[in-house]
Write a protein that binds this DNA or RNA. Structure first.
Lengths: 259, 259
DNA sequence: AGACGTCACTTGTCCTTACGAGTGATGACT
DNA sequence: AGTCATCACTCGTAAGGACAAGTGACGTCT
């Protein structure tokens, strides 16, 4: 029927035609696309070609395919969950990272001992193979159902002399901040944000659809002297969550950074 | 040969075997994987099955395939570029967002007029179909070659009475901040971070490899009364860039947000 | 009426065959 | 020596066929 010509491969032409129909609104969000057989007839191509085109659109995150049903136009609404990265001061004078309290724990936290890798060692300003307490959590946002994987890493050097950290590595981060404050630390935080495709186990744990990146946050808590005390990592699906940072000018001396 | 059995589909078993070999280090980063023909022989499967397995690994971002050469294990180093999101105060008392100055412009900025969409309208606290000046830039980080797409949106209501904004919508953001400050605004910023898979034109413009998400930043500049003045959007490949936020406690009243 | 089996439709998997196209080395020709 | 054609290897594209598996509706049997 509607023979197409322009770009390169046949399946790309088919993909482009469908993509255009989606983006132009001809195929509405949540609606069912024509079946593979219909697309074969419509464009006069074979099934592998149609499936190849559909695979391309899946990889772009434009459609979801359900076995036995068909292909649905994905609704690209904005994420259901916004993680506010602003620090607020509570009535008793301690600081709280708001996002630390939003989640429910889906499972019992699992604690273990491990050592720094190249990545975690750099963030904690330690070498590699330094001893750490670790604690992994599976978190769920009760209102949206969004899942997240959380990890707390506490260097032995930080836990030294703070009994609760060594004895209860599963203490929640918010409580840890409280303890550190009681021990005289004035805390600041720095966060690094990255995005990448999930590994299969992350895809399964976080229940991610096709072509959904994970947001990977690494938060370092610094003590009074600016030395890193603990490291937290949060991984969650980028389709369900976004980050919001409130930036206010401070009075630090000029420092042009560019790592 | 090494017949595999466990999970579901054949191609998934093949993919799992290769994935394991990569993650365990048997296939080193940057090294060449066996060719499709060799994998067919190795696992005793047909070419489509091998290609299906390879497609899965590409979608995970584990390998890169080059036409005529073969499949290479991707090196998953940390991004070459860190965007520092800390505000510094310069000697003359104005504020600068450091990342605004790091980039080179790869092309002449293109300016246009447009209207708010649902998304941009929400961020600017305007309705839809409100008039805007727009300016698109293609940016390049000279040291790493990382590319980024930048967009500035200035509502007519903001440009009113500030001649340079209406006459020169291609003014660089840093300069715009300066102008707004001269007009008496004490600026603050808020940023929203999202990640998603790129559209084909973004893939091409940003020169992204397979299975590479884009980081999508939306930065709103607020005036003295907190009202949004301008909106900037920055899109760049998540393989080349990461974001770093420095968070310092402020003295705002407690406000538990959760959108 | 209710439970359940069947059937038509969907996508998922797997195979075979064929040719097009990019890459690099080899070797012949100038 | 240098240039260029050829070739073998790689992945990319396209078609065909066949059967498995998930889904929902329809109709029959109890």
């Amino acid at each position: 029927m509607s023979e197409i010509q322009r770009p390169g491969a046949l399946y790309q032409q088919v993909a482009a035609a469908i993509r255009e129909a989606i983006l132009s609104g001809e195929f509405e969000p949540d609606s069912l696309l024509p079946s593979e057989a219909q697309l074969m007839a419509r464009y006069g191509v074979s099934r592998p070609t149609v499936r190849n085109a559909i695979a391309a659109l899946r990889a772009e995150g434009l459609i979801d395919v359900r076995h036995g049903k068909g292909s649905y136009v994905r609704t690209s609404g904005r994420p259901a969950l916004t993680l506010e990265r602003r620090i607020t001061r509570t009535a008793d004078g301690t600081f709280v990272m708001p996002s630390g309290d939003v989640w429910d724990e889906a499972e019992k936290p699992s604690t273990y001992r491990t050592r720094t890798t190249k990545d975690t060692g750099r963030l904690l300003q330690l070498g590699t193979e330094e001893a750490l307490f670790g604690c992994d959590r599976l978190l769920i946002d009760p209102s949206s159902g969004t899942r997240a994987m959380h990890r707390t890493l506490i260097p032995f050097t930080t836990a030294e002399g703070i009994a609760v950290l060594a004895e209860e590595p599963s203490t929640r981060p918010a409580a840890i901040y409280g303890v550190l404050t009681q021990y005289g630390h004035k805390l600041t935080w720095s966060e690094t944000v990255r995005a990448r495709m999930p590994l299969p186990d992350e895809r399964a744990t976080l229940r991610l659809p096709d072509a959904t990146p994970v947001l990977h946050l690494a938060r370092v808590t610094h003590g009074t002297d600016g030395r890193p005390l603990i490291l937290e990592e949060l991984r969650t699906g980028a389709d369900r969550a976004e980050l919001a940072y409130r930036i206010t000018a401070d009075k630090q001396p000029t420092r042009r950074t560019r790592a």
